[in-house]
Design a protein around this nucleic acid. Sequence first.
DNA 1: CTGAAAGCGCTTACAG
DNA 2: CTGAAAGCGCTTACAG
Lengths: 354, 354
Amino acid sequence: MKKTGTELTGVKEIARRANVSIGTVDRVIHNRKGVSEETKNKINAIIEEMDFRPNKMASLLASRKILNFAVLIPAVSDETDYWSYPLNGIKQAAEEIRQFGVIVQYYFYNLDSKSSFHTAAEEMLQNEPDAILMAPSFVEESIGFTQKIRELELPLVFINSDLPDQPGLSYIGPELYQSGKLAAQLTSFALQKPDKILTINIATGLENNHHLLRKEQGFKRFFEDSGLANEVITLNINDTKLDPTEKALLPALTAEPAIKAIFVTNSRVNVIAEILAKHKRTDILLVGYDFLKKNIDYLITGQITFLICQRPKEQGYLGVMALYKHLFKISEVEKSTYMPIDIITKENYMFYNG
Amino acid sequence: MKKTGTELTGVKEIARRANVSIGTVDRVIHNRKGVSEETKNKINAIIEEMDFRPNKMASLLASRKILNFAVLIPAVSDETDYWSYPLNGIKQAAEEIRQFGVIVQYYFYNLDSKSSFHTAAEEMLQNEPDAILMAPSFVEESIGFTQKIRELELPLVFINSDLPDQPGLSYIGPELYQSGKLAAQLTSFALQKPDKILTINIATGLENNHHLLRKEQGFKRFFEDSGLANEVITLNINDTKLDPTEKALLPALTAEPAIKAIFVTNSRVNVIAEILAKHKRTDILLVGYDFLKKNIDYLITGQITFLICQRPKEQGYLGVMALYKHLFKISEVEKSTYMPIDIITKENYMFYNG
DNA sequence: CTGAAAGCGCTTACAG
DNA sequence: CTGAAAGCGCTTACAG
């Protein structure tokens, strides 16, 4: 435990060298007006020469700033606890940067309701945040919204899904196509020559769920590239409940007895697992998405073999930290951070944190 | 961007309420002597009541402390770049906490040389660090060493491998047994009834490598529990070079033509891959450890199917952050953090960061 | 356009 | 055992 030396450093030293007061130095550092070009240049030269970096702690302390981070994400619903993971990551980050004067405020919207997105977004803007973390689940609505944010020049980070061509500060989330390919590779291990594969998209408003399609494309691409001859059949189910899903699934399985593997393109895989379990179809390999309680349960029974997961908790954590690092000039923020594509099985789920 | 209020807070408010000077408050906060029991109790009561938490930034600023973190880990060697990952994670963390007055100093030892560990450890102690992050690769030597550290009452975090019953602040690393079980599960997918499996331990000084044994145990346990009848054969190779390994491997494969899968208990899996590739044995499923350049190359060619990896970079990062969080009282530090057990394949390695 | 002073919430000698 | 003062490296009014 050593002490720093006693030579003049920082603004004082700059002021001394430039023969001005530290007030003027401060103005230059923060690009405030009211400094002559001449003094400004002189001071900037000295800053350059000293490789001066302001002491963030001192500045924070002196300015007594409170930064408000707004978080705009889907609410945790009864149907899926997926969003509890990003939320936990966000909360952990919030806890860690609280002492630096950052307050995180939450605005939740309902995934069933575009108007709830609007309401939450508007309320958020009312409160004049200094930075925004959002999951742009509704593409159209989010685009309109980000335009407002851009006018306000607020740093904006996307998690979970990206908004094409919207210039946010950063995107942190999955690359869907490749995760589909991975799912296909995992499926292929247990497959024999004549076996067929069923790909299932389950969602209300399937036409809006282009991200499911991306995964499906990646999945099919793997089989095309690999030269494996297994046929891939697609089943779209425009409903997330058990009964309609069962009514759609059973005929498909009866029609194609050669189906030995099912790939569900999202976290609803537990619904399929429930149906398969009910009908004692343990001969079918089931692969799906996300580290949800219900999914883990079927992983343990063996009805689901692989879950693919892209670190939702870490997405939330990194999202907040990206804003923090940007605003506090800790380090540069990556334009895109694609999360690793994790494979969860019966034998490693216990060490996965979501 | 709001400002904090102007009411008296912190030490000043405590001093006002207790009718003492802030100097005395400071003494109580830091448990320094020279305060009467009475004042002490009064102040402590107020601190309790206010739920007062010192402003770490102000205290850091005022004390101008520089904290030295010492890192004692194996050097990156020609043979394996494994340790470059923890090192990168450590550097990233170091960069992030530099502005809080933390300086990280590195002490590298050679995995082939216990004396190099001694030298590095001694040098480290000479420099009087305030906290220590270490990988206790040599168990005996590390135990002796941690006793000295305990006398100095320095916070100590272990990464990569644990030291049984040594009371460090925290352990961050893998749980080996379970990763062996996972390897077995992955192997089992592609296995037929009569197929046999070869488990290979490659290391010099195998008798010291109890961690390889742990993985092997987990691996075998999976097959016992699962009721799969596949025979598991073990091959120990007390050398890490290609030629001796080849001389040991080929006879084993000839003796047991039914071997259709090989599990290598550490990162030397690329050596086995090289031999198998040379002899065109693409029929054998190969599973091993660690996200090394050489291993990834064979993952891409398909000679290796699965790599198991336990986030070495994150271990380094979290290790430094654990010391930081402890010393700066950001949050409590977990006694043990077992890393997730990641599965790397040809289809997801590109998004893995090590 | 610039400077001098007060202050952020602490810590550190120093004096008594 | 306790207090008053100076200072950490900045920012913020205020005055000129």
